[in-house]
């Protein structure tokens, strides 16, 4: 088991390196292979105002005329050790991990991302708990009561949840529960340390909106998984031993049905941590999603790079954790 975890950790490190290479290649190598020269490349990344001077400055700053592996090496060095930027008048030091300076704010990208991260974390993890517990519970009950009114009703609502776009449900819930009936007035983000109660209260609408979408998916998945698992032979054996039905369903049935659900959960959470762009924008939450949107709108290249790498990092880590979790649950996987 330990060897399994160590092997997965090593594999994850390699994977992260490969991810950084691919990201780097997307931004710096592929355009060159497609025929762009360094000036054209710098023009794309210089931001909103591509004056000739700015482009040349960026070209030098990014070191675009160096060989590609030197560029990549500098890039990695910047992430690990920090980088020095010679802007002509002075040399500024950008602490690790250094993704460069934002064009929009002229500040290092990383600290900005770090300050936005708690918002996204609050949103994602809160919604994740709700949708996992709620979705699985509804799925299990629907599977056990297959064909009944509860089943049809919940699956119908689940279909709606999966189909309706999140900005639609978000705006509707804002209109109803924030403006029309002021149950949750003034939905802005309050840090948890400032005021936990208000933090939670203001996040209820975003949580429920986001969770509604995923809970619907998970309810359907759990229902299908439970139906399949409950017809397995080991369920019959469990009953033959005289176990109470509740134990048969939860300890034998649900446990077996849950493994694929957990895999998907890991992936979903990993994706969400990279920035729930639609939800954050709908509810004006200043998280990584909004950050990403602004970065794209402003063509702020360092910010875009930073967000891409961070999101990839979350997904890779989430994958690794899910793999390990899978091995903990299913002994057949522990090779």
């Amino acid at each position: 088991m330990i060897t399994f975890i160590v092997r997965r950790l090593i594999a994850t490190v390699f994977l992260l390196i490969v991810v950084s290479m691919i990201t780097f290649a997307i931004f710096f190598l592929i355009p060159r292979l497609a025929g762009q020269n360094t000036y054209q490349l710098a023009t794309e990344y210089v931001g909103r105002n591509p004056t000739r001077a700015a482009v040349l400055q960026l070209e030098a700053k990014l070191g675009l005329d160096h060989p590609i592996w030197v560029q990549y090496g500098n890039f990695l060095k910047g992430i690990v050790f920090g980088a020095h930027y010679n802007s002509g008048t002075s040399i500024t030091y950008c602490p690790p991990p250094c993704f460069g300076y934002s064009f929009r704010t002229q500040q290092p990208v990383w600290p900005q991302m770090v300050s936005d991260l708690p918002v996204t974390l609050s949103l994602a993890i809160g919604a994740a708990v709700i949708w996992l517990v709620g979705g699985v519970a509804i799925g299990v009950i629907s599977a056990l009561k297959r064909g009944t009114l509860f089943d049809r009703f919940s699956m119908g609502i689940a279909l709606a949840g999966v189909s309706l776009p999140i900005f639609f449900t978000g705006l509707i819930s804002l209109e109803l529960f924030s403006y029309k009936w002021p149950i949750f007035p003034n939905v802005t983000y309050v840090p948890i340390l400032t005021n936990p109660a208000l933090w939670a209260r203001n996040l209820v609408l975003p949580w429920v909106t986001l969770a509604f979408l995923y809970a619907a998916l998970y309810a359907r998945l759990t229902r299908a998984g439970m139906l399949e698992t409950m017809s397995e032979d080991f369920i019959r054996t469990a009953r033959a031993k005289g176990l109470r039905e509740r134990n048969v369903v939860v300890r034998h049935g649900l446990r077996a049905a849950l493994t694929p659900i957990l895999t998907i959960f890991g992936m979903d959470l990993g994706l969400l941590l990279g920035g729930a762009i639609l939800t954050e924008t709908t509810f004006s939450l200043p998280g990584l999603g909004q950050f990403t949107l602004l970065a794209i709108q402003n063509q702020d290249f360092p910010e875009i790079m930073g967000v891409v790498l961070l999101a990839a990092f979350f997904i890779v880590i989430a994958n690794m954790l899910v793999d390990i979790l899978y091995a903990v649950i299913d002994p057949r996987v522990r090779v």
């Binding site: 032979d233 080991f234 054996t237 034998h252 446990r255 077996a256 002994p331």
Partner: peptide, 13 residues
């Protein structure tokens, strides 16, 4: 009761 295929009749986890 004991069943026909013990691999599927025993819980794998």
């Amino acid at each position: 009761m004991i069943f026909q295929d013990p691999l599927s009749a025993l819980h794998p986890y």
